Simulated scan of single mutants.
Amino acid sequence: MTNALQAMLSERDWILADGATGTNLFNMGLSSGDAPELWNVEEPEKIKALYSGAVDAGSDLFLTNTFGGNASRLKLHDAQNRVRELNIAAAHLARDIADAEDRPVIVAGSVGPTGEIMEPMGSLTHAIAVEMFHEQAAALKEGGVDVVWVETISAAEEFLAAAEAFKLADIDWCGTMSFDTAGRTMMGLTSSDLVDLVAKIENQPLAFGANCGVGASDLLRTVQGFSARGPVVPLISKGNAGIPKFHDGHIHYDGTPELMADYACLARDSGATIIGGCCGTTPEHLKAMREALETREKGPRPSLETITERLGGFSSAGDGTGEDAAKPERTRRRRRG
């Protein structure tokens, strides 16, 4: 049976995904350090408002509030035994919103990293990682998501464990990594490395790409790194709404709706099919992105100079795949909003 996202990918030149989860929930009153996933049962109307905000702004696809919904992350809040409950609750709320629309809207079950380091550098074994990802994916599937979506991954080993877990759960999936360290993931992978990794996975994703990272410019340079390799799997671009700045006791992202509209079209022209935002991206940004994608004709692949002129400069001299590969520049680490 054809997956709903697979069908949409076959019919559309671009698909608008959603924006931020964490930063939008903070704006609704979530306190720093609290588990957003608990709001799936404690504040369901706020979670439905989060989902509705994206859908009403024009998103064709949105992620569930389950980024930290695995046993390892929930253990920090003494909720490691509530994986099934919290993920099913998030998926049910999402289905309520998606199914009320008179157009197709895809519900993607968000799966974040475990927060642990895998062997041989850390203590997390492959088997335990697969078990944790499988538990979450099975719950999201039970709750009714169309696809699971692993995001903000930095290690190849964790990406592979997730792919294996999704096969066990018998559910289609997408996957993104975060390239936040001079064009590489925290564990050193480049855009080219991810293309090679995806190519050898038996359980192929419906789409793959990049999310979060440093800023929209850096993310598009990574997307161009993917597309230059000619992958057969559709690409995902989910960039932050500018750069985070601390103001009046809160983290704010400086990207305007106009900047994110430019970003969306540049992402499409760089080879991405699924285009959305990450930290700092609000419904206001999404509305501008949707309008731009609908009204601006597709253009040629933009040069790196064009990207920096429209979106701002890169945080590093290169993306880790060229002459700079041996000497990656230091850059600040990403903080999730």
Rank of each mutant, 00 (worst) to 15 (best):
M1C: 02
N3A: 07
A4M: 10
L5A: 00
L9I: 10
R12V: 01
G22F: 10
M28P: 01
G29M: 05
L30M: 13
G33F: 09
L38K: 13
E42P: 02
E43V: 00
L50F: 12
S52R: 15
D56E: 15
G58P: 11
D60Q: 08
T66Y: 13
G68N: 11
A79I: 02
V83Q: 08
N87I: 03
I88A: 07
A89T: 02
D96W: 00
E119K: 09
P120R: 00
G122V: 11
S123M: 12
A127C: 05
A127R: 08
I128L: 15
M132N: 02
F133G: 07
Q136M: 06
L140Q: 12
V148D: 13
V150A: 14
I153K: 06
E158D: 05
L168V: 05
F179H: 11
F179Q: 09
R184Y: 06
S191K: 03
V195E: 12
A199P: 04
A199R: 15
L206G: 05
G215M: 04
A216P: 14
L220M: 10
A228N: 15
R229P: 03
G242R: 09
D248Q: 10
G249E: 10
H250N: 09
G255R: 04
P257D: 08
D262S: 14
A267R: 08
R268C: 01
T273C: 11
I274R: 11
T282S: 15
M289V: 00
L293K: 05
R296S: 00
R301P: 01
L304H: 01
R310P: 00
S315W: 14
A317N: 09
R330G: 13
R330D: 09
R333D: 02
